[in-house]
Amino acid sequence: MSPGEGPARRRDSEISLATRRRLFLVSGAVLAALMTWALAGMPAFGDYHGIYGLLLNRVAVPQEHATNVITAVNFDYRGFDTLGEEFILFAAVLGLALILRERRDEEEGPPDDDAVGRQVSGASVAVRLITVALVGPTVLLAGYIIAHGAITPGGGFQGGVIAATALLFVYLGGEYLALRRIRPLPLVEITKATGAAGFVLIGIAGLIWGVAFLDNWLPKGTPGDVFSAGTMQLLSVAVGFEITGGFVLILSEFLDQTIVLRRRRGVRSG
């Protein structure tokens, strides 16, 4: 097939946008009808019958000494599911890092600007001041939310993302290349791997101790205290590490792509 013939043939056999829209409207209507029929058979909103949830609400506080039942569900009753979710995140970030790594025909260099001869300017003084001032409290807030995850709303997941945004502040306020010195890539990867591995190791430690995998085997204090819920706190911290490392890695991969990787002059890729 000659190159000139290819695109013309492709356009002929292609479904046009209008046809696609009409097709979607028909099938969407059928889907909507089926979903409405399915959901109409459920108990009405607000009239929850599930036994598991009601039982957990009653049992979690005396049993686990954790007042935040959701964190108890995440890290203790259904800790195994959280392990799976954590590894989904790990795999997604791994895939992203693989896709966006430096390719053979790209090289690193300082940021460019479109206008010839002009360098990328740094942020203004006001922006720098505000972002630097906000980094400390944000990290503190992230630590607070992770540590108090078993008591008040929060936990490793939210706190981890907040910690990652603290690093975003540093990027917004400063030179990107200075950021790379603060945030060396191997350190981020080690953080993320530590979090993921830490979760599994704490569970296995339970096995060694003689109870089931991921069972809550540390001594529990009174409900309402910070260190009252046993392994849940540790698991929360492990998850926080992993999510922070994961999101910082995502942000840095994209930032590297944008700012640092440049096509080598004169070489075009396929």
């Binding site: 929850y48 959701i70 569900v73 259904r78 970030v93």
Partner: peptide
Amino acid sequence: VDPVVKALTLTDVVVGAAVTAL
């Protein structure tokens, strides 16, 4: 309210963002 679905949704939101990034 039921804690199990809240736990599921919570992890879902965070992991969904990572998959979107991918």
